[in-house]
Amino acid sequence: MNKEVTQLFNQWQSGDQAVQEQLSQLIYQELHRLASFYMQKENQGHTLQATAIVNEVYIQLNNQNLNVNNRQHLFALVSNMMRRYLVNHAKTKLTQKRGGDWSKVEINSEVDGQQLNLEQLLDFDEALDELAKIDERKAQIIEQRYFGGRELEEIAIAFDISESTLHRDIKMAKIWLMEKMS
């Protein structure tokens, strides 16, 4: 898989536009897998709901000038895109809720609960930026694990660390982030 992707990117970068379709498909699959990662524990029928979110990220991604060196890079990029997408979404939604767009103000307790979580997402995002300043690797690991939904092995390989080191990194990063967000 890895070889295949690198090859595709090389071909693309050397101007072979024909591979774009193939590559897009691959990115699309990645995003799809990721969105379902957060849906899998829920009811059936979520597959296609997950697809809706993927469409939006995908369109954003497609509009970018991609410069990707390998699969690891792609993972990192997808995780980061996902994070930015969700953060933007949260900001938009919160602005609306706060009256930025008066027509969409809704008042009920369910929305309040959701709002709280969206605010937490923004805190999480900020804390993650802070973490990156003092320990970049941990911040990236958290980003790929939580926003990218990556498997542990894949992350361990990407960062060339053992799984126990990875577990420890995640544990430490979580403690740090939770302290920051508290």
Binding site: M39, A50, H89, L118
Partner: peptide, 23 residues
């Protein structure tokens, strides 16, 4: 903070994903 709920990040992000679908 080491013993606090382990799933908090998943639920924050899961919630945002859900909400973005609605949006």
């Amino acid at each position: 903070f080491s013993n606090q709920s382990n799933t908090i990040f998943s639920s924050i992000i899961g919630e945002a994903v859900q909400s973005s679908i609605e949006l």
